[in-house]
């Protein structure tokens, strides 16, 4: 095919707009969001006296006192480890199970399908406080209080609706054609699913998994009530170590560094997958 030399500019690509005020707004938003965090992180590197002074101090000689206290005195790395195990496991289980649920909801028409979808969605709307006591009693009866297993089961169940809800939409966007084509080419249903649908879904599944992992990592309410010692995760641990009779700002700051560092690293590393996964189906050709 011959290309025209005087190809007119495609109308679907309007000239990029460069408005200075967009940057002003963006910078403003960043500052408003980032300053408090910066302040807390700074507090983490102060000693006790500096951090609790009445007037905010911006210049100080850094100290690792708070980290020393958290890591060696309180053994927060155990809580850190608990959090890692619980979020990884619950993410793995909820995404794996949710994937198949979502697939079934997207692909098969069965009686009550819409009811299931609706139920899945409304599950998300339930405030955790409403089920706190029944769950506590259940955990007590089943001997799951203060165990990692208990938290993993609970978080898996909690995240499942979100996973199903996200992935159902993405599965719907993938034409059935792909699997059918693979099946005609000689694959079983499962091989077609594994070799064709999953690779296409990979960005969406990754994005969903990242979300779920962050939600599990940050979960506070249930972790506070259902764990006490052995299985305590980061969020309640931070609360317990930094807030007693008064608030130890430098300990809180150090804890914030510890709990957010993995998240920041994680999102920085995976931001491309996250964005491509979330925008799948929107900008796809």
């Amino acid at each position: 095919m011959k290309k025209l030399s005087s190809m007119p500019e495609s109308p679907s690509a309007p000239p990029a707009q460069r408005n200075w005020w967009v940057y002003v707004v963006l910078i403003l938003v960043c500052v408003v969001n980032f300053l408090p965090y910066l302040r807390v992180v700074m507090a983490g590197f102060m000693d006790g006296a500096t951090s609790s002074s009445a007037t905010p101090i911006w210049f100080f000689s850094p100290s690792l006192e708070a980290f020393d206290y958290l890591i060696f005195e309180k053994g927060i790395m155990k809580n850190f480890f608990n959090s890692v195990v619980v979020s990884l496991a619950s993410t793995f289980f909820s995404v794996t199970i949710g994937m198949f649920c979502a697939y079934a909801l997207a692909r098969y028409d069965f009686p009550g399908r819409d009811d299931v979808s609706f139920w899945v969605l409304t599950n998300r709307m339930m405030p955790p406080v409403a089920v706190l006591i029944p769950i506590f009693v259940t955990f007590q009866t089943a001997g799951l209080l203060d165990t990692l297993l208990g938290l993993i089961i609970l978080y898996t169940a909690m995240q499942l609706p979100f996973v199903v809800w996200m992935l159902t939409g993405y599965f719907r966007d993938i034409p059935r054609r792909y699997e059918e084509s693979a099946m005609v080419d000689g694959d079983t249903w499962f091989a077609a699913f594994r070799k064709v649908t999953l690779p296409i879904m990979a960005p969406s599944i990754t994005a969903t998994a990242i979300f779920v992992m962050i939600l599990s990592w940050n979960e506070f309410a249930f972790a506070t009530f259902l764990t006490s010692n052995q299985a305590k995760t980061m969020p309640p641990a931070i609360m317990a170590y930094s807030i007693g009779a008064d608030i130890k700002w430098n300990v809180l700051g150090a804890a914030v560094v510890l709990i957010t560092a993995p998240l920041i690293l994680f999102v920085l590393l995976l931001q491309r997958q996250l964005i491509s996964g979330l925008s799948q189906g929107v900008v796809r050709k």
């Binding site: 054609r177 059918e180 084509s181 693979a182 690779p199």
Partner: peptide, 12 residues
């Protein structure tokens, strides 16, 4: 062997 109405090629 089959060719689908919208080709059914694997985009990955």
């Amino acid at each position: 062997g089959m060719v689908f109405q919208d080709y059914g090629l694997y985009r990955h």
